[in-house]
Simulated assay, not measured.
Amino acid sequence: MKKKNKIKIIVIIILLILIYISNLHYPLRSYIAMYPLKIYYKNTGLFDDINLKIPSGKIEKENFYPFMLYFNSDKGFSNYIGKDANLSIAYNFGGFKFRNKNSSYYDKDSDLYSSFYGAYIIDSDDDNSFGFNENGHIDVDLLAKVPEYDQKYLVLSSIGLSSKNSVFENDIIDMKENIKYIDIDDWIKIDSNITTNSPIHENTNFYRGYIQFGIPKSEANKNFPLINIYGRMYVKYFKEYDKTIGFYILGKNKNIVDKIDKEIVSKSKIERMD
């Protein structure tokens, strides 16, 4: 019996050593920490009212994080836009590669560098539908504040860049109305060129975002340099839910955004709750 126990201990020690030298503890730490948070935020925010299914997946050989993540913001987002509103976010980003300490989100050589996709659900406490005026026309400036708040106050601040020093400039280059998307009519499709901060930086402190994204590569000539990326959003107000839904995609160029759209996001579904 003692011999069997010794063998078990040796096997466990060997496995722990292999996990450590292969850097598997970084993605494992991320999955173990983020999965319970995913469940909590999904069941306490607006996604609990709307059964919105967004797949995880990959484009070509590049994998995204293995499951969708969620976050809710009410007071922070309300303070940012200057009126009461509830915001729930579903998101995904470039996944971890074998033996890497970091996700592809940090990797400037990856197709998924600085990429995100997911959905926003916004519930405004005033009489108007969020992002649309009384006549039903889109309020582009207000809608642009959603990804701006997300990037500056949630994403970049979680890895050490103060919101006061972060940049998110959204230059709309194309907008089309009456688009059919995920088998639902009347979406508005908005494409943009975006100037924002790269996540690349030297890690001198530990920030909470490292738990989910991993540790950044130590190759930064300049911390959080400005980069140009491509953005896309499909937005629609749903009268039956009294909420605005926006599917969004960020990528290093239009080609990557097109692939993420075609291969993953366009396969999403909105189903009625029982």
Results as ranks from 00 to 15, higher is better:
267 K>V: 04
135 N>M: 02
35 Y>M: 05
76 G>A: 14
58 K>V: 03
238 F>T: 06
108 K>C: 08
118 G>W: 04
116 F>K: 04
253 N>D: 13
140 V>E: 15
225 P>I: 07
198 S>R: 01
145 K>N: 12
230 Y>L: 02
121 I>H: 00
25 H>S: 05
137 H>M: 13
120 Y>S: 04
137 H>E: 15
202 E>C: 15
185 D>H: 04
193 N>V: 11
245 I>F: 00
105 Y>A: 08
68 M>H: 11
40 Y>C: 06
141 D>M: 04
170 N>C: 10
195 T>G: 11
250 L>T: 11
75 K>M: 07
248 Y>D: 01
200 I>F: 08
176 K>V: 07
71 F>N: 11
268 S>D: 09
218 S>D: 12
7 I>V: 14
251 G>T: 04
247 F>S: 00
146 V>E: 03
182 I>K: 01
274 D>K: 09
265 V>I: 14
273 M>P: 08
59 I>G: 09
25 H>Y: 15
70 Y>S: 01
192 S>N: 09
123 D>Y: 10
207 Y>F: 15
1 M>L: 15
202 E>P: 02
202 E>M: 15
17 I>F: 12
1 M>H: 14
268 S>M: 04
108 K>R: 11
66 P>R: 06
268 S>C: 03
51 N>H: 08
273 M>G: 03
108 K>F: 14
141 D>Y: 08
133 N>T: 01
171 D>I: 13
146 V>A: 03
90 A>F: 03
4 K>F: 15
3 K>E: 15
1 M>E: 15
164 K>F: 11
84 D>N: 14
240 E>F: 08
119 A>S: 13
122 I>S: 00
217 K>P: 13
79 N>A: 10
69 L>W: 06
125 D>T: 14
261 D>I: 00
43 N>G: 11
35 Y>C: 07
20 Y>H: 08
15 L>F: 13
117 Y>M: 03
266 S>Y: 05
87 L>C: 05
67 F>R: 02
4 K>R: 12
147 P>E: 00
179 I>H: 03
150 D>K: 02
126 D>C: 06
180 K>R: 12
230 Y>T: 01
119 A>L: 07
143 L>D: 01
159 I>R: 09
14 I>T: 05
127 D>Y: 12
85 A>G: 06
274 D>T: 11
